[in-house]
Design a binder for these strands. Structure first.
Length: 316
DNA sequence: ATGGTTTTTACTGCGTC
DNA sequence: GACGCGGTAAAAACCAT
């Protein structure tokens, strides 16, 4: 591109004061990149390549509505650091008016009342936002895990209780939401393993288990160890196996339970092993690794468990 | 923190298709 | 030779104390 062309382009754009120069260069043609804040784009001056789109111009509005001198609307850019994006009202603590003069005692009392109310509204508002975000999160994870409505409702009840009891401070909304969902799924007998929950959550396993334990303790939730049987139907259908296999697997678990072999072993592992054993007994064989995959259990564990299950079966 | 239990990882050998 | 399976040893994770 020649000098004159560049010049011409520049003169047409310099009027737009919102446009700012950048030091970056175009990945395509090495031309100069220009940030066009008005359209929310970063474009190349040479070839017109749009590098970034959908940025939001947080600056004052360029257009003026009334007289030509006032070209901004009010307020500072918003920030995500505060729950209300810094848009709420703050009332200063000093008993001075806008000019720094002391207030009369009557005025002081009034200001005190205003502070109290403002604080009340603000915290209520913050709780509501908190809840909204958490419930959205619970909903998202629940659908990702294919959990029914009842689980979501239970989860949101648990979350609300946590919020009411002020269990949130020091913990992330994400974490508590995830733990609530995990607890709810177990409570209603439609459990998901920690692995599965962790996969759809934004928090890591440590935070999840820690928060979960905390919730159980503080809210005194009664949650028994998950029943291996409750995992069986889901895994069976994911493997595309017949109902026959499911029945057989259930029977194996029940027999084992009567012999007291179940305690201490991971319920998911037992379910997986029962399915594998059942597939052998019914001649509908699936591989250990296939079962292991849908259940997130190692083949070794399946081997160990299914031997025990078959032994227990022989005893009975 | 610690120790006991369970699960996982990695590796090896065997039989089959 | 790849695959499914069985077994083992050592590491890692989990849990109650």
């Amino acid at each position: 591109m020649t000098e004159t062309q560049t010049q011409r382009r520049m003169t047409t754009t310099t009027e737009q004061k919102t446009e700012t120069e950048q030091t970056d260069v175009c990945p395509e043609c090495s031309g100069r990149l220009v940030n066009d804040a008005e359209h929310g784009e970063t474009v190349c001056q040479e070839c017109g390549l749009v590098v970034e789109e959908d940025e939001i111009d947080l600056g004052p509005e360029w257009r003026s509505f009334d007289d030509e001198t006032n070209k901004s609307r009010v307020g500072a850019p918003t920030t995500n650091m505060m729950h209300d994006k810094g848009l709420s009202t703050n009332i200063g603590w000093q008993n001075k008016d806008a000019y720094g003069n002391a207030l009369s005692s009557r005025q002081r009392e009034k200001m005190q009342r205003l502070r109290t109310w403002n604080e009340r509204f603000r915290t209520r508002d913050s709780k509501e936002r908190n809840l909204k975000q958490a419930l959205g999160e619970i909903d998202r994870m629940a659908s990702a895990l294919g959990l029914p409505e009842t689980v979501r409702e239970t989860a949101s009840v648990i979350y609300r209780r946590a919020l009411e009891d002020n269990l949130l401070p020091g913990r992330s909304i994400e974490g508590v939401a995830t733990a609530s969902l995990y607890a709810a799924a177990r409570q209603v007998g439609n459990p998901r393993s920690l692995d599965e929950v962790e996969r759809v959550s934004r928090v890591d396993r440590m935070e999840l288990t820690r928060t979960y334990r905390y919730l159980i303790r503080e809210l005194e939730l009664e949650i028994r160890p998950a029943d291996p049987e409750s995992y069986i139907p889901r895994f069976v259908s994911e493997l595309g196996l017949a109902d026959e296999v499911e029945r057989e697997a259930r029977r194996l678990i029940q027999d084992a339970r009567e012999q007291g072999i179940l305690s201490g072993k991971s319920p998911v592992g037992l379910a997986a092993a029962a399915i594998y054993a059942a597939s052998l007994l019914t001649n509908k064989k699936v591989t250990q690794s296939a079962v292991g995959n849908v259940a997130d259990i190692s083949e070794v564990t399946i081997r160990n468990r299914y031997h025990e299950l078959l032994d227990a079966q022989a005893e009975a």
